[in-house]
Amino acid sequence: MNKILFFAHLRDEVGEESVQLEVAGKTVAEVKAIVAEQYKVAKLDTAMTAINEEFAPNEEVIQDGDVIALIPPVSGG
């Protein structure tokens, strides 16, 4: 099982801070597609992804237990 975290506008759109999904073996790109479909969120193509708190490319494969964060363009500072 994998925990998927949402932040900023994505959290507002999904209505949850996190959800549990079974996505081990899938790539980051596939996870984004699943999330976009299931939760009807737009703008996922501009979101970065972190696996276990480190940025990960679209091709990276998810392992069981990985924590996945969908990170909209940041605006700190």
Binding site: V28, F55, N58, P73, S75
Partner: peptide
């Protein structure tokens, strides 16, 4: 509104910086 990078001039088509 949540602010992305100002004016959305930067996107991350590869999913990462």
């Amino acid at each position: 509104e949540w602010i992305g990078n100002q004016l959305e001039t930067v996107s991350y088509p590869t999913g990462k910086p």
